[in-house]
Design a protein around this nucleic acid. Structure first.
Lengths: 222, 222
DNA sequence: TCGGAACTGGACGGTACAGTACCCAAACGA
DNA sequence: TCGTTTGGGTACTGTACCGTCCAGTTCCGA
């Protein structure tokens, strides 16, 4: 029974996602969505009781699609020699994923309507934002157990990690339009963020990587 | 000649600011503004040619009001012994200022309409966001010259400073409604952020603060 | 005091849009 | 083949709102 009805249902979802991301909640009309989905408005209302429901649906649907990111964040080899390189790679993955236009658009969409749909913002924060951070924290705890990092509070370290990496590019993307960041920019952000992160969170037992930068404060124990 | 016309002009600006911050751009009608300003709609249109102009006006007006913050950020005593304490104080000022509801609301307002008013977002980013960071960078350069910090790239250090401090509370405020941060939360964020910042950016010549550091703040929330 | 500018209140044109009513066509069983 | 059911399309209703117009009133400055 994968017939018409189901196809239309998905066409509507897809169209709605596209238009909402592009024009915002109040900027898109149900007619727009129907037109893009090549479907009559009546059909839209047959499948989704009203505009708010449809909106919630597509936001939550995209929220559920972050498993890849979560997996990616969990995957850091416990390789002492290349800790900096491995973390930089992770940082780069995080940056490229989170600065992609659709992700930024979704972010804007949710923030813009956080007043009208408070539970949507909260849900996204918990299911999306915090979930990634928790996974990151777990990774850090593992690296700490393996003697590579020193994180008394892994969740805090995860927050700091994200803040160091994302504050600049994400804010830029929020305020200026879709100023695409170049690959080289992201490389710089990743390298600089990781350098600072490791200066603060590298385990005192581990020597800083020889190439990158004069050693961290000698009494690294703080 | 501070008479009627001027008074009305300001009443309109004030009312518009309040309503726009509260209900967003498309959520507020010109009638709402006129009503709150105790003014006829005609008068609103006498002073501001249309809704977009009025909106741009109030956003730029609030943007110009960040001089206090800039001054505050420039003001860090060059006192070696109390570097950590002084920076923490600065961090606390920054946090309390930037997490105040009106500031958060303005942020949301601009982000929400960054598509419709691209130049407004860009202007705010440059005049507001970046200006604070540049001032902070100047301060860091000074502290570096004085041998208290080691910042090869003060602007980058400023970005990291802001990211470490603001990523958590600002994102929370963006997504969840106006979940007011308590004073104690801000204290924790400030202390934890500064600890990490100093671990990475304290001048190697400077000994870390002798007092053993306070217990790690619990970061989970909820 | 007086002339003119600014303000008021309401009504109105035009438009956009959410949601609905009603009709038509395709699918499916007998 | 025919009739019933299910879903799709068109046209409509009602509302909200931007921006304008007008006739009458209030306030300011000279």
């Amino acid at each position: 029974m994968d017939s018409r009805s189901v196809r239309k249902h998905e066409a509507i979802l897809e169209a709605a996602t596209s238009v909402f991301l592009d024009k915002g909640y109040s900027g898109t009309s149900m007619d727009d969505i129907a037109k893009l989905a090549a479907v009559s408005k009546q059909t839209v209302y047959k499948h989704f009781s009203d505009k708010e429901k449809l909106f919630a649906e597509i936001v939550l649907a995209t929220t559920e699609r972050i498993d890849n990111l979560v997996d990616s964040v969990a995957d850091v080899p416990a390789d002492a020699d290349d800790l900096e390189e491995n973390l930089t790679r992770l940082a780069h993955r995080l940056l490229t994923t989170l600065t992609q236009p659709p992700v930024i658009q979704l972010r804007r969409l949710i923030i813009a309507n956080a007043d009208t749909f408070p539970e949507l913002g909260a849900t996204w924060y918990e299911q999306g934002f915090e979930r990634v951070l928790v996974t990151l924290a777990v990774t850090f705890r593992r690296l700490t157990d393996q003697g590579l990092l020193k994180t008394d509070d892994p969740m805090l370290a995860a927050h700091h990690f994200a803040g160091l990496l994302l504050w600049i590019p994400v804010n830029q993307a929020m305020f200026r339009g879709n100023t695409r960041n170049t690959e080289a920019d992201l490389d710089r952000y990743a390298a600089a963020g990781i350098r600072t992160f490791l200066a603060a969170y590298r385990s005192p037992g581990e020597a800083p990587s020889p190439v990158s930068r004069p050693p961290a404060p000698e009494s690294g124990r703080r």
